[in-house]
């Protein structure tokens, strides 16, 4: 069996680029939490006229793919405008790294979200975001596209793991097409809860398994 990580992943893991904090950043994003596992912090400096990301740094409390993805997205984002940087996807980062094992998608997607959170933070601080969006089924499905199915390395919506979602009085219910004693059931449940409970108007997240 080959080593699961590409040479490029290992290279970024060993020598991550743009590591550290930016003092007094224009935007800061923090995704994940020590309680759930991996955590990524992304800091950006933005040129106010052109909206170009002049500097970007990251910190990681995570595994190899988390560190390598953090490193590569800072390389991708530097010199881009906010609009361009927002469009950087996990897939792009993964391709840039020569591929990541499917089971590690969950850990690496966090770095991409960290960058988006930093951009959102900048936009909020500079009055570029008008109002908070109400959580609808569509918003839930959009968020769930960031929950990875460890079986395939693709998100749980695309791989049809999510059977049904409902939103009622701040309670989000997600039905997952897996038995509750499935190898990845607990990990997926935790991931879904983490992604949804951070939404401003969500009070409770119920993840239900089919068996």
């Amino acid at each position: 069996m080959k080593f699961p990580y590409s040479e490029k992943v290992l290279e970024h893991f060993r020598n991550p680029r743009n590591v550290g904090k930016i003092e007094d950043p224009d935007g800061k994003g923090l995704e994940g939490s020590p309680a759930c596992g991996d955590m990524v912090a992304v800091y950006i400096k933005v040129e106010p006229e052109t909206k170009i990301i002049e500097d970007v740094k990251f910190e990681s409390y995570g595994c190899a793919s988390n560190i390598a993805t953090g490193s590569v997205i800072t390389e991708l984002a530097k010199g881009k405008t906010l609009e361009e940087a927002k469009k950087i996807t996990w897939k792009q980062a993964s391709e840039e790294l020569g591929g990541l094992p499917p089971i590690k998608a969950h850990c690496s997607v966090l770095a991409v979200e960290g960058l988006r959170a930093a951009i959102r933070d900048y936009e909020e601080k500079h009055g570029l975001v008008i109002e908070q969006e109400e959580t609808t089924e569509e918003v839930v499905r959009r968020r769930l596209k960031h929950v990875m199915n460890p079986l395939t390395g693709l998100d749980v919506v695309r791989t049809n793991l999510v059977l049904k979602t409902t939103v009622e009085d701040g309670v989000v219910r997600v039905v997952v097409d897996l038995p509750s004693d499935h190898q990845f059931a607990s990990a997926i449940k935790e991931d879904i809860t983490e992604k949804l409970e951070s939404l401003w108007d969500v009070k409770k997240v119920d993840v239900v398994f089919t068996e």
Binding site: R14, C63, A64, K104, F184
Partner: peptide
């Protein structure tokens, strides 16, 4: 994080294991 530790340690020639979610088969 444990998997980052064990991978760095592997590069230095040590085989160890961790209780980190990233290392386990069930995540």
């Amino acid at each position: 994080e444990g998997e980052s530790i064990t991978l760095h340690m592997d590069m230095r020639g040590f085989a160890l294991s961790t209780g980190s979610a990233c290392f386990s088969r069930s995540l």
